[in-house]
Design a protein around this nucleic acid. Structure first.
Lengths: 356, 356
DNA sequence: ATAGTTAGCACAAACGTTTGTGCAAAAACA
DNA sequence: TGTTTTTGCACAAACGTTTGTGCTAACTAT
């Protein structure tokens, strides 16, 4: 069907090996005459030769394909990162196999196994994180990989995460400075790295400011919209509802807004809100939404850089754990009880910074 | 490195072919004794055998991989579709290679070529659409493919599109019924199927209602945010600015909102707006945003179904063009001059419907 | 006891590459 | 003219599968 080296070999009269060498630009090395070279190039062009990457991959043990494991591409945060990763990889000459795990560890294991069978050269994984034998197995076999967004402490793997602890700490502390004490959080998936760190940051900020931690203000168990909706409904209908809600993802925020809208509660007068993850429409919401922004571009770029570096260096260098800073963006959705006119713009805004 | 049939063959003493047949569940067909079967299964399990899909693909000429060509994964609309496609394909046992074209025809051609070299079994393509030799070439070689979101009339290919004409027509007509005459549109990428259809719908709606088409109200040339921003700035600063703006994508809308916000213009009192594409946060914006919703789930599901069908049937059946309906969702961002209290909820809302 | 079956497996080719090595002819040298 | 060097290419193995065919030993039947 498709044109092969063999066909070019037949029509030109040169051997398959010669054709291969010419098309791989190894003419000099193997002393192919430039006449021959021209003939072969011309024929290849004319026939529309297209190398079979399966055969090549089989022979070379390199596929120039990277596997990306992401919990949910439809989540804007992950979509954005996927986009950037694909872009940078393309620039480096790699293709991308993408798979969604839906935060399901079984799917994650299956998908990684499948990628392995397909011979991907490296992996970028945003793991569910509850289990990691399969990732350890990759490491044990010297597969280049980088963990993204969620670290797994037990593994000596390359890793790029945002400082979720500090992001949550700063957001919480800012709410406290604004006079809030009844601060609720709507968590994402329990026992994920990101969620754990955020909860820790939240709790520490409360503790450091002498505020008792009220477990009834800690709700939710999933990064998705439905969780935001239900959890908010619960919070708003408590005996002593929170004065501020800190949502741990953009999708949670979406559900939260729906619930708040249905309950006829006003932001920020009745309740203040802040959200993890950038939300493009945040400034234009009924009440412009405060957010903890993660540096998506840096995450995507760093992931690719780190992976490529590891692939090139053949595992000679040690693994690196990179911590990126988040940025707090304060907007009107946070009521400032200590400033009558609610003048809080640009307060405590920190810039992105890369540490290592 | 990795375990191969050959190694299992050596440790069990059976030939490679026997091992292969057992692991492929062809024992009966080739009369392999169940003792042998057990031994081989056990060893394969013990050694953690993982078939090399490159070798298999080379031999079988099937990779169980589908190539997806998308203009911009970071666009929520495309992200959502990508997600759904990946989900349905996974259920059918296929992996997904994703590539972004950024609306660049050259990249599209390159990427499709690359996928072809990698031996994908089928293609789902959201084409830039300005050029299509490369797609025609795929068709000429009987590659299963389905065009998504944008049709190319000149090609006899499977295709799934939303009725952009009608979506735009209905939205425009609704604005007219609400008393608007100076209706501007901010176009997406020129000469794409979707953009052409939307413009056509817009113009026809105006014409059918006896409103002169004012070309100065037709601005923009790109589906991205920057275009929305700049175009809106231009529109708002015209001598006779429009009373309503129809943005042709969610990202355009984002830029538009930014411009509107900066210009201190109020929605819907100073200007009405409506947007193509679902925007999750639409109901919670300063002024809840009217949108033309496209049935993403249907698009994703239909794409996969159609592709799988074509792959199974070996091109025996004719190509199909499927047209999906959009849905107009009216919200407060559209001012109704004919209804004092602006009571327009649920007006003219049509439901999704699948035609063929 | 012998012929015919059948069960159970091995051999080898093929998929399309890449690459180390070998070999004849031409060129260079003496 | 004879020897050495260089040029220009072909051969063949290997990557890990799948699968058509062939072969031996055991079984069945007479």
């Amino acid at each position: 069907m498709a044109i092969t080296l063999d066909e070019i070999s037949k029509v030109t009269g040169f051997s398959v090996s010669t054709v291969s060498r010419v098309l791989n630009k190894k003419s000099k090395k193997y002393r192919i005459s430039s006449d021959t070279e021209r003939i072969i190039y011309a024929k290849a062009e004319e026939l529309g030769y297209r190398p079979n990457e399966l055969a090549r991959g089989l022979r070379l043990k390199k596929t120039h394909t990277i596997g990306l494991v992401v919990p949910d591409i439809s989540n804007p945060f992950f979509a954005s990162i996927t986009h950037l990763i694909q872009k940078y990889l393309y620039e480096e000459g790699y293709s991308l196999i993408v798979c969604n795990t839906n935060e399901d560890i079984k799917t994650e294991i299956e998908q990684i196994d499948l990628m392995r069978r397909k011979g991907v050269d490296g992996y970028i994984i945003m793991p569910v994180g509850t289990q990691y034998e399969h990732i350890k197995d990759l490491l044990d076999h010297d597969k280049p990989l980088v963990l993204l967004d969620r670290n797994i402490d037990a593994l000596d793997a390359n890793c790029i995460v945002v400082d979720n602890y500090r992001g949550a700490y700063e957001a919480t502390e800012c709410l406290i400075r604004f006079g809030h004490e009844r601060i609720a959080i709507i968590q994402g998936l329990l026992n994920t790295y990101t969620n754990n760190e955020r909860v820790r940051g939240y709790k520490d900020a409360l503790a450091d400011n002498g505020i008792r931690i009220d477990e009834s203000y800690i709700v939710g168990n999933d990064f998705r919209r439905e969780n935001g909706y239900i959890s908010t409904k619960m919070l708003l209908n408590m005996g002593n509802p929170p004065s501020a809600i800190f949502a741990f993802s953009d999708l949670i925020t979406l559900g939260m807004l729906q619930a708040i809208s249905e309950e006829k509660v006003k932001i920020p007068d009745d309740v203040s809100v802040i959200s993890f993850d950038e939300i493009d429409f945040a400034p234009y919401l009924v009440s412009p939404l405060a957010v903890v922004v993660q540096p998506r571009e840096l995450i995507g770029e760093a992931a690719v850089k780190l992976l490529i570096e590891e692939m090139r260096s053949k595992n000679k260098v040690g693994k690196r754990k990179i911590l990126l800073e988040s940025k707090l963006v304060i907007r009107e959705s946070m009521k400032n009880f200590n400033s009558p006119n609610n003048e809080n713009s640009n307060l405590g805004v920190s810039v992105h910074r890369t540490t290592s």
